[in-house]
Design a binder for these strands. Sequence first.
DNA 1: CGACCTATTGATACGTATCAACCCGAGTGG
DNA 2: CCACTCGGGTTGATACGTATCAATAGGTCG
Lengths: 247, 247
Amino acid sequence: MKLRSAVDTHDCSTCPVRERAVCARCDDVELARLNKIKFYKTYRAGQSIALRGDALDVVASVVTGTATLERVIEDGRTQMVGLLLPSDFIGRPGRETLQYDVTAVSDVTLCCFMRKPFETLLLEVPHVQERLLQMALDELDAARDWMLLLGRKTAREKIASLLMLIAKRTINIDGEAMGDTPCIELPISRETMSNFLGLTIETVSRQFTGLRKDGVIELDGNRLVRIPDLERLLSESGDDTDGGMLF
Amino acid sequence: MKLRSAVDTHDCSTCPVRERAVCARCDDVELARLNKIKFYKTYRAGQSIALRGDALDVVASVVTGTATLERVIEDGRTQMVGLLLPSDFIGRPGRETLQYDVTAVSDVTLCCFMRKPFETLLLEVPHVQERLLQMALDELDAARDWMLLLGRKTAREKIASLLMLIAKRTINIDGEAMGDTPCIELPISRETMSNFLGLTIETVSRQFTGLRKDGVIELDGNRLVRIPDLERLLSESGDDTDGGMLF
DNA sequence: CGACCTATTGATACGTATCAACCCGAGTGG
DNA sequence: CCACTCGGGTTGATACGTATCAATAGGTCG
């Protein structure tokens, strides 16, 4: 696997998340300051990026790939508390140790900043702080929506919600790909899903077959899902049909 | 009931949350700017402060009292997604409508700011933005810890976790009240607890009796709980015995 | 080919929800 | 003063949903 081809120039002008990461609103001068304290780092799929309790020496933006944030109890119970996609931020200024386990689920490239200099920079470059605040508030909304899912939704609704979540992003990316039946590729395994949704892997599997038998979705292998009727799926998700996006 | 006695002077120097709210790091000049766009508002226990979908014309700090943030599905299922205590912030800059229902559970006093001027001020007064970022990140951590509780903990662990959460705050406030058995007063009803924990009111009740029969807690009326052995309660909560505070 | 990993399916156990009855203290009004 | 109601809380019987344990299927890789 070639990991570095996309981003190994370390050049912000070709960065795929330039418009959405913490640096989104920076001008050239501010970018230059960030450049002085940054470096890239890559991780293989499945590799641990950091563990709960680790010293938080760096903070980082996800440039490519997908990572997860999870809490684990001693007896093995695991709850995913965040899904980190390109442009998402890892770590928090003002904290010494990490609160969660961070794991790469696909190959991941991070744009890392030394924490201490980054904190100083935050105070002097308001554009970064401004963006970080927006991102934190967005994540807070997402976390709260997820609390509703975890606390009050049935297994079937949870699966439908997850599919809608992925569908919204994927289909938006495809732009005007309407007309043909929307098809999404699941970026995560059944086990990851179960940890995300607060279910067991068996229940996830059963709900997939249930939705398939009821004609809500069509399965093509383990990772490809076709959705003949998005409205139908939405109504299965238990969410209000109006606003209320999940992420 | 007298609502206004504590804070009706509108004077920041006597404000009970001056040290912890969004204005915590402001100097006198910055405070004066905030003062121009602020006003107080009070709500009665049980009263709705705002509903999901309402236009977000103001943002606010809780000065006194307790409020809840919750999401409700059409069929009535309710999940509390935040508990708002004095100094906590309501609303978010950059968003037009409210995402959650906000309800006063006790009498509540808010220090309100017009949203638009507040957003402008945010860009020009970095101390406010800095503080708001810290608060948002703290709430994000709290929300994520709560996700673990909702997704993976048993009913008994949920109740124990909630009691520990309240105990940590109350007992800290009492300072060095060690020696006598710690006693906490529940600020919320069984129903509110059930919405907080993703349970039904009956299950909450049963777990209370279960913990009582096992000697983990002692009940004195509906709201007073004595905790003879904090370590014991902690071990029932399913949390790591080390760091990992819930709020 | 066998080894292994992920996913599916089945049988059963267990925990929590649901529905219903009852309790209790606080108001309220006769 | 007592009867009544009302809201919050507890307790009980039962239903239902998801977890658990176990077996099987399909794919990939050595």
